[in-house]
Design a protein around this nucleic acid. Structure first.
Length: 580
DNA sequence: GCCGTTTTCGGCCCGACTGTTTTCAGTCG
């Protein structure tokens, strides 16, 4: 039982209680506990195996009751309370409340009045026109339900961050056509650089709110206007992406930006803190004297300042201890783009890249880098025209020649002799030791046999690390966001072994991968394992993807000292040599 | 169910929009 499954049970308990009509604060507690569990870097299983119940104490939002249920889930694989609630109502009701516009209250009414117990039943009733006859419902609600069901059935609600970027740019450009605009800013999970986002939230300050709204709902990509008010509107695009807009006064811009950036958990914690200080935070500002006196709101710094905190970077706002750290003055000094000195995962035309070594190098120089590791595939990755030993040797000569040329031209830049060597199913490496020993940098990755059991896969990767030949484990979980689940691997064990052998783990910045993810980075930081933020570029354009890697690293609280390729060349080479 | 700068009980984040209703509950973020 992993953290994600435990979180899911708590989310379901919250949903079930909500449909049943339970105490709202208890419901919130379960949801809060679920979010805490979800964001925990270490697995509860490990914590419990280590120290028993004591290992689970001190987790925020987890008290006597939820702790007991965690232990129950870990030891029995189930939770009696969860089962009991499920026994009181059909499981399909959990799907019903995923329909936009249909919440727990209305779902409960439909169950009571019409005996509807799942999505299909809901669809049949709506299409038969039965719902409009129920008190509190009408034709509009019925139509909304039909649309909502279609949406639930056809769309994955989460979009890869990189897929939303073009929309953000398009809307920003479009909205700026309205006269009188002073600020336009994306907020929400987009601004926190979450790997997937459910919707795009845009904030605007403008003298004429109505003009902004009228213009906004006419954007050509819009498929449906969900709501349109004086200061707030919501639309859904043809792609299924939801876009929300809010228009605000200048003096509320900071508090609105803070509020809509979230996360929800962060905001709840911040507002509780404000309340304890006799203040009230809303999107319109920070107020005291029962909301009478405006204290702050024009910018985010003042909002945090009003509750005695320094500004907290958006990537940290997940209620994973950032408020406490801010209070103690111990916020991390997060890694920045300017700290990155080179890229340690780059392909060339020699395997499946699209450009030659010197073209990739030139692009890397334009990024301001000191170095780039040439990490073409090894022969086991046949589809990528992976290199055998002879071709690797030829490439080593080519890199030497390239570096000689750099020296003659008095350029500081260096290409590193490297490889992305395949970790084969038995854990052996796809180049012989004598070849790997000639290299400056060895990235080792799994590209096949994804379906192994946790124990097998963990042993496979650990065996590779134990050769002492590996500098970096490439894309350590193999996941592709929204496309392929991570393979089953115990990263805590892999990290412990990597630490012993002087190896780093990669944070693959390719926006489909982001692997390690943010929570894994937290774990690496805790364990003192270095992380290499690399792009896995197959083209000169991919080098820019480093931004996704950096912001994911920031979400994982990583600092310059934690990141391998934030080291200058000389220091980097020293570290790379220490493998063993 | 959780938690403590109103501490072991009594609170718990805040507001916009919609649809259905005659003043507001439900939903959403």
């Amino acid at each position: 039982m992993e953290n994600a499954e435990i979180a899911r049970v708590f989310f379901e308990i919250a949903d079930l209680l909500e449909i049943k009509g339970g105490d709202t604060f208890r419901i919130r507690s379960y949801r809060n506990a679920a979010m805490v569990v979800e964001g925990l870097p270490e697995s509860l299983k490990t914590l419990y195996a280590g120290d028993g119940e004591d290992g689970l104490k001190g987790l925020p939002g987890i008290g006597e009751s939820t702790r007991g249920k965690i232990i129950e889930l870990l030891t029995t694989g189930g939770c009696a309370y969860h089962r009991e609630l499920l026994g009181e109502m059909p499981h399909g009701m959990l799907d019903m409340i995923k329909v936009s516009g249909l919440g727990p209250k209305k779902a409960a009414v439909l169950h009571k009045e019409l005996g509807i117990s799942d999505l299909d039943g809901l669809e049949r009733a709506a299409e038969a026109g039965l719902i409009r006859g129920i008190r509190g419902f009408g034709e509009a609600t019925e139509r909304k339900i039909i649309r909502g069901i279609r949406e639930v059935k056809t769309r994955s609600r989460q979009f890869k961050l990189s897929a939303v970027v073009p929309y953000e740019r398009s809307f920003t450009r479009y909205i700026s056509e309205v006269p009188g605009i002073t600020e336009i800013a994306p907020s929400g999970s987009y601004r926190r650089w979450k790997e997937t986002v459910g919707d795009l939230d845009i904030l605007v300050t403008c003298s004429d709110a109505r003009a902004v709204m009228d213009h906004f709902v006419r954007h050509p990509d819009i498929a449906e206007v969900v709501s349109k008010g004086e200061t707030k509107s919501t639309v859904v695009l043809a792609s299924g992406l939801q876009v929300d807009i809010r228009v605000l006064d200048k003096r509320s811009f900071g508090s609105a930006l803070q509020y809509f950036t979230g996360s929800k958990a962060h905001n709840v914690a911040l507002r509780e803190r404000a309340r304890r200080m006799g203040l009230k935070i809303s999107e319109y500002g920070v107020f005291r004297e029962k909301g009478e006196v405006w204290v702050a709101g024009e910018n985010e710094e003042d909002v945090y300042g009003a509750v005695g905190l320094p500004w907290i970077p958006p990537e940290l706002r997940e209620n994973r201890g950032e408020i406490e750290a801010a209070e103690e003055g111990s916020l991390p000094r997060l890694i920045e783009r300017a700290d990155i000195k080179g890229d340690l995962h780059v392909h060339t035309k020699e395997s499946d890249g699209a450009y030659m070594l010197d073209q990739m190098a030139e692009a890397a120089m334009k990024m301001g880098y000191e170095y780039m590791a040439v990490t073409d595939h090894s022969k086991a990755v046949g589809i990528a025209r992976g290199l055998d030993e002879a071709r690797l040797n030829a490439q080593i000569r080519a890199v030497d020649e390239f570096n000689d040329r750099m020296k003659r031209q008095r350029k500081r830049f260096r290409a590193l002799k490297a490889t992305e060597v395949d970790i084969k199913a038995d854990g052996s490496l796809d180049h012989p030791e004598r070849a790997l020993k000639k290299l400056d940098c060895v990235v080792a990755s799994v590209h096949s046999g994804f379906r192994m059991e946790t124990k097998e896969m963990t042993a496979r990767v650990i065996k590779a690390v134990r050769t002492g030949l590996v500098n970096i484990i490439g894309h350590p979980t193999g996941r592709l966001i929204n496309e392929r689940e991570p393979y089953r691997i115990d990263l805590e064990k892999v990290m412990d072994e990597a630490k012993r052998h002087g190896a780093a783990l990669e944070l693959n910045a390719y926006p489909d991968r982001l692997d390690l993810n943010d929570v894994h980075c937290l774990l690496a930081r805790q364990k003192g394992v270095m992380v290499a933020v690399s792009t896995d570029s197959h083209s000169i354009h991919h080098l820019e993807n480093i931004a996704y890697g950096i912001h994911t690293a920031r979400r994982g609280w990583l600092e310059k000292k934690d990141v391998l390729n934030a080291k200058p060349l000389k220091e980097l080479l020293k570290i790379l040599k220490r493998r063993g």
